[in-house]
Design a protein around this nucleic acid. Structure first.
Lengths: 183, 183
DNA sequence: AGATTGTGAGACATCGACGTCTCATTCGGG
DNA sequence: CCCGAATGAGACGTCGATGTCTCACAATCT
């Protein structure tokens, strides 16, 4: 009887990631509950989205914590970041696209903080001479999100094996396409 | 007086890429015209989307033609591709995401052909020893789209200068982040 | 059994976006 | 300079989604 809130959010994330216009009725039926019950647990569509964002940001924040971005050199930190983030690639893709349609609403503070932490990693890479200075931290941050999103989709479509995702993103970002670049 | 149809479609692509629910009114105002005029040029929302797809694919195809992917080495061809594609970055981002959303219907044949041509370039880079073999053509194609999309949005948001976009995408894709990699 | 709580089904009003329409204004060509 | 075409502003009616509400039923607890 008791509605499983986590399960509802999981179903909602799956549907909304695929189609942002999914109706409350569709979400409710996908979760196996009635629209009325869905509204009893989430004040409205906005509340549901917000709950999704918070859960997603919390997961992403934990991943960033585990990556220990301040330790070691920037290259290793970036590798750890990609490794920890990869399991939540789909959620992150949802967040990065959903979060950038702000237009008036306040951007989630947690998201801004995560954005800043990742930018700081790229800046550190610049300062320590590990990353090329002609690519700005802002661009690299956007590029990272873009590659993760592209990777999530490629895995979803079967064009890239899930086991290869981590390596594909990290190597492309760090070393580029060129063959001559060793390790 | 004459409405710049291309410009309208370009703005529409930039907005619809990030938020599929962008209203006709928002698109109209972003393009600097009234909602009435927008409806005079496009029968409706569906017609606008369809026109976007067709024009986008046509422009992208022309860009790919101009890039002469079969000439010279794969590195130069990829640089040309990015250079020719960059002006239509917003449009391309819209196309690649739009092709993700739909399910069941038929994927535009023109898009599939373009996809194949890009993949072929990366495959050539592998065969000629210019590109690393551990990154598959399918992944590199998706990554290219992802980076172009991320770049288009970054420019739209003012986080990257339009003049830097070409260089940012090409260098990241070809050389990666690492500083030690020369040229 | 009785009471309490959660749920499903559906009615209902509201809201925003869409598509169509009219009318005054403005731009550009002849 | 004048006239036709294009545009902007806005007024509708329509439709789908939303959020609230009521009522009946089922599950759980005492």
């Amino acid at each position: 009887m008791a509605v499983d809130r986590e399960q509802v959010l999981k179903e909602a994330a799956a549907l909304l990631t695929r189609r942002a216009t999914t109706s409350m009725d569709e979400i409710a039926r996908a979760a196996g509950i009635s629209r009325a019950t869905l509204h009893r647990h989430f004040a409205g569509r906005d509340a549901l989205i917000k709950a999704l964002e918070e859960q997603g940001i919390a997961q992403f924040a934990q991943a960033v914590d585990r990556a220990r971005l301040a330790e070691g050199d920037a290259v290793g930190a970036l590798r750890r970041l990609i490794g920890e983030t990869e399991p939540h690639a789909a959620m992150l893709a949802f967040l990065s696209t959903e979060n950038q349609l702000f237009e008036g609403g306040e951007i989630n503070a947690g998201w801004l903080e995560l954005d800043a932490r990742i930018s700081a990693l790229f800046r550190r890479g610049h300062e320590e001479g590990d990353f090329r200075i002609d690519l700005s931290p802002a661009w690299l941050t956007e590029a990272l999100y873009g590659l993760i999103g592209a990777g999530a989709w490629a895995v979803h479509e079967g064009r890239v094996a899930r086991n290869d995702l981590n390596h594909s993103i990290a190597e492309l970002l760090l070393g580029g396409i060129r063959r001559s670049m060793e390790k």
